[in-house]
Design a protein around this nucleic acid. Structure first.
Length: 534
DNA sequence: TCGGTGGAG
DNA sequence: TATTCTCCACCGA
């Protein structure tokens, strides 16, 4: 089995880039996109002041009174722009599998695309002769690389110069993108940073050396082809959409993502295949994806690191201290081996095509003075309205048809007896199919009275769920003891492909007291009943 | 299946 | 530490 070629794309300071489009006077200015007192992200000029993500907004303003502030509590504009970028990239690389990570990152499996280009280069005899006279004849002055695999879009190629970059709204949807590009510097210039840098002067080392290992030669050549494709994609994104991104090219998702972060913003970095271990060794443990706070803490405890030296823990030192069995013992069964593999730069997880529809939509807010159950009941109203609005955006396509159907409503809260007492989230779920108006009334599809629909949901579904949660946490519904709701979250989950059938049996009178949760078997029967068969 | 945890941006 | 507002995978009950 040949190794895969994976491209990781990460849009630079994405929330900031979106805000700069909304307000061009922000371009070049130090500014913060905040949520409550939290710095969600910040422009590169703001980073140069020494400010950081997740820092306190108040402290930042104290230290730098001239830093500008942009409220980023509503994620709607970022979701919308993120979707636009994704659509554009999908159109630019027809036939490639693309997985989204958050709003602003993607992995693209370009293996097949690169291999079909490699085959074409070999066939044209370009690979070993370079651009000799006989080869350049009929090739213009360079090499033409395809952005679509031969299987994906054989008929789509058009002549050079027909690709129309547009900065308009509909750029991605409108004209089909040119699926090939002339790559004039193919043999002469490294289009990317290379790790390790000793390989990267002006030409990849594999072109300069006798290759002792043909497999490695071809693998590195494929990475090199991928880097040209990546460069072209970056250019198209920049010209077509006006966004800057950084990219990484490697043989798996983790490595691609990690090298991609080496030269931000705007950088493109290729990891030479034989250097994966060397690369991982010099990385800091906290830079390894999926090696999160908890896993790191476990490791630091075991290694006797004090937390002040968090950032100093190199993967190399972990290798020196442990072998695989010793390391794995630090973690629950199964988890240790996965983390160990990650530290070796091994990651066989496939790039999974991200579906058109999310699996859940949730809306939440945090509070300081939400100190009674009736107040919390009121606070649910705007949350539910937001949820319905977002569902309309995410679950209903441009043609007005539903793309997916949520079947479960979840309410999550953080509630405690004091304003700053730490407490975990607790949640409760209830089937949405018992709330007939959700699917049967036209409000959600068309527009208007979301507020009324939200109000009905609140009364008949969500308030009883809130009561149940409160009781479960030891609070009394009529009690007078102190109660602090720190967070409320409402989510529509359990998204299925086909519309649940709401029969008259489902239209029950609103429950007046706390909902009694149905027994699992009974719930199962209800779902069977509500869904269309065949 | 539900609810909680941990990880991502 | 968790901080914000999410979305997802995974695990035990």
């Amino acid at each position: 089995m040949g190794k895969r070629i994976i491209l990781a794309v990460d849009f630079d300071a994405f929330y900031c880039a979106v805000e700069e489009k909304r307000d061009p006077t922000l371009v070049g200015a130090p500014f913060i996109v905040y949520q409550k007192d939290c710095i969600a992200t910040l422009s590169y000029p703001a980073r140069e002041l020494g400010l950081h993500k997740l820092g306190s907004v108040a402290a930042a303003v104290r230290a730098h009174p001239h830093v500008r502030l942009v409220n980023g509590e509503s994620l709607a504009p970022y979701r919308e722009q993120g979707k636009r970028l994704w659509t554009f990239v999908r159109a630019a690389l027809p036939g490639c599998t693309i997985e989204r990570l958050g709003l602003e990152e993607m992995w693209i499996d370009v293996t097949a695309l690169v291999e079909s280009n490699l085959a074409a280069l070999i066939e044209a005899d370009v690979l070993f002769k370079g651009l000799s006279e006989e080869v350049t004849d009929g090739l213009d002055q360079g090499v033409r690389l395809s952005l679509a695999t031969a299987a994906a879009a054989p008929e789509a190629t058009t002549g050079p110069g027909e690709f129309g970059y547009s900065d308009g709204e509909e750029s991605s949807a409108a004209a089909p993108l040119e699926t090939s590009f002339l790559c004039e510097d193919f043999f002469f210039q490294t289009p990317a940073h290379v790790f390790p840098t000793s390989h990267g002067a002006t030409m990849p080392a594999f072109l300069q050396t006798e290759s002792p290992n043909p497999e490695e030669f071809y693998l590195d050549f494929k990475l090199y082809i991928a880097s040209h494709i990546a460069r072209e994609l970056m250019l198209r994104i920049s010209l077509g959409l006006g966004y800057s991104c950084s990219m990484g090219v490697a043989t798996n998702k983790t490595l691609a993502k990690m090298v991609g972060s080496l030269h931000k913003p705007g950088g493109l970095t290729v990891l030479i295949s034989s250097a994966a271990r060397e690369f991982m060794g010099v990385c800091h443990v906290h830079k390894v994806p999926y090696f999160g706070a908890k896993s790191r803490h476990t490791l630091q405890d075991a290694m006797g690191h004090d937390s002040a030296r968090d950032g100093d823990l190199r993967v190399e030192s972990v290798w020196q201290r442990y072998d695989r069995p010793q390391f794995s013992e630090l973690y629950p069964p199964g988890q240790g081996d996965k983390l160990w593999a990650l530290l070796q730069g091994e990651d066989d997880t496939p790039v999974r095509e991200t579906g058109r529809v999310q699996k859940q939509v949730s809306i939440e807010d945090t509070y300081k003075e939400l100190t009674s159950i009736p107040l919390a009941e009121q606070a649910l109203q705007p949350l539910l309205e937001s949820l319905l609005r977002q569902l309309r955006v995410d679950m209903i396509g441009d043609d007005g048809a539903w793309l997916g159907f949520p079947t479960v409503l979840r309410l999550a809260v953080r509630v405690s007896t004091g304003p700053s007492t730490v407490s975990n989230r607790v949640s409760h779920s209830h089937t949405l199919t018992s709330f007939a108006p959700f699917y049967t009334l036209p409000e959600l599809e068309t527009s208007r009275d979301l507020a009324a629909l939200a109000e009905r949901m609140r009364h008949s579904l969500v308030v009883p769920m809130l009561h149940k949660l409160c009781v479960g946490q030891g609070f009394r519904l009529t009690g007078t003891g102190p109660i602090y709701f720190q967070l409320l979250n409402v989510a529509a989950t359990g998204v299925v492909a086909r519309k649940p059938v709401i029969t008259s049996a489902a239209v029950k009178p609103a429950p007046t007291g706390p909902i009694r949760s149905a027994k699992p078997a009974r719930q199962r029967k209800m779902l069977d009943f509500y869904f269309t068969r065949k």
